[in-house]
């Protein structure tokens, strides 16, 4: 006879296997989730978190009670061969039915009251000392304008820590949705509507976000980051953004790049202060100072920028920036120029 494993050893193996699975799951849970909604960094996010917890624990409670009752009934009342005749033909019980209509209604009132308070709190007018920021959604990138500071940038939202930012959300083409999950809930960006949203980031740091309303081919590639800085760092950034663009020294690769830029289709869509005034694509006056390119799907390195300039639709499908069939020399010159625009 072949040796069968004892019952105890089978049990142990199952236990080990389950333990391994659990560790795997925990490992998966412990993964960084940079875009998570459940680690809010604003008061707005905290309010949402409060409602999430309230509804979640209410849901878990109801889940345990009702599913528990269901499972109990399923096991308790299974038919047995010994039973003869039909069970009592109970048609209902009005009192019971009224009770189980009222209980969920009462629970929902418990959710509705704080919900209403938070709706009105979070949609009140923004505080007076807020920093106004105009967010313009484009297929498929974000434009950020700071009307009081005279700064325009793209995809990389810089904000001072602790100060409320009051966003005006506009669209240049179709519907988008402005969403930085760690900094609060989303708000849709709709053509011909100006939507409002405000919050103050609590901590210094960088946090990702992305468009949350389907907006066409590269919806998945319409990402952004928010860079929350100390007041001093933010002021420094603003000064740098307001400065005139860097002037490349004559004879340098960057100067050659500026010449390529000025004679190519680039100028039709992009602004570089003093060089061009295109308004279709992102303002490039200080593009070299950004950390990301192409709405956050690549980082701002010379290699990635060259890849992007050679064939934009290959990097971002459907990209409105066409493949200009630039020569390698032109691409390298352009990279040198654009990276010099700190």
């Amino acid at each position: 006879m072949s040796k069968l494993p004892s019952r105890a050893s089978v049990f142990r193996r199952v236990l080990v296997a389950l333990g391994g699975l659990l560790i795997l799951l925990l490992a998966a849970c412990a993964q960084e989730s940079p875009q998570t909604t459940i680690d809010p960094q604003t008061a707005f996010g905290d309010d949402i978190q409060y409602l999430l917890k309230l509804t979640f624990f209410a849901a878990v409670g109801v889940f345990i009670l009702v599913e528990g009752f269901l499972i109990f009934v399923v096991f308790r009342y299974r038919a047995h061969a010994s039973e003869t005749g039909a069970p009592a033909q109970v048609h209902g019980n009005t009192r019971l039915e009224v009770i189980w209509t009222i209980i969920p209604a009462v629970m929902l009132i418990g959710i509705a009251v704080p919900t209403t308070r938070i709706i009105f709190d979070t949609q009140a007018p923004a505080p007076k000392d807020s920093l106004p920021v105009t967010v313009i959604g484009h297929q498929w990138w974000w434009e950020f304008q700071y009307p009081t500071l005279g700064v325009t940038t793209a995809n990389e939202l810089h904000l001072p820590v602790g100060q409320t930012a009051a966003f005006s959300l506009e669209s240049a083409d179709v519907q988008h949705s402005f969403w930085l999950p760690r900094l609060g809930g989303k708000r849709d960006v709709i053509p011909n509507h100006v939507n409002e949203l405000w919050w103050a980031a609590r901590d210094v740091g960088t946090t990702p976000g992305q468009c949350a309303q389907y907006c066409g081919t590269s919806h998945a590639n319409m990402r952004m980051i928010a860079v929350v800085q100390s007041q001093a760092d933010f002021s420094q950034w603003v000064q740098a953004q307001k400065a005139q663009p860097a002037q490349p020294p004559d004879g340098s690769a960057a100067a050659a790049g500026r010449a390529v830029f000025a004679r190519s289709a680039c100028i039709g869509c992009h602004t570089v202060e003093g060089v061009s005034q295109g308004k279709v694509g992102p303002d490039l006056t200080h593009v070299g100072s950004r950390t990301i390119l192409a709405a956050g799907i690549i980082s701002n390195t010379p290699e990635d920028m060259a890849r992007w300039l050679k064939d934009p639709p290959a990097v971002k499908p459907g990209s409105l920036m066409p493949n200009l069939h630039l020569s390698d020399d032109d691409v390298n010159a352009l990279v040198a120029y654009l990276e010099s625009l700190k």
């Binding site: 909604t37 309010d47 949402i48 409602l51 999430l52 509804t55 979640f56 209410a58 849901a59 109801v62 889940f63 009702v66 599913e67 269901l70 399923v74 929902l108 959710i111 919900t115 938070i118 709706i119 979070t122 949705s177 999950p181 609060g184 809930g185 989303k186 708000r187 949350a212 309303q213 389907y214």
Partner: peptide, 30 residues
């Protein structure tokens, strides 16, 4: 039919979670 009840409860409860508009601002379109 029993599976329907068991699963529908879950769908119903998560539905209540985003009936609260502020909470839905994090859940909508995810």
């Amino acid at each position: 039919a029993i599976g329907f009840i068991a699963m529908f409860i879950i769908g119903g409860l998560s539905g209540v979670m985003h009936s609260s508009p502020p909470a839905d601002l994090q859940q909508n379109n995810t």
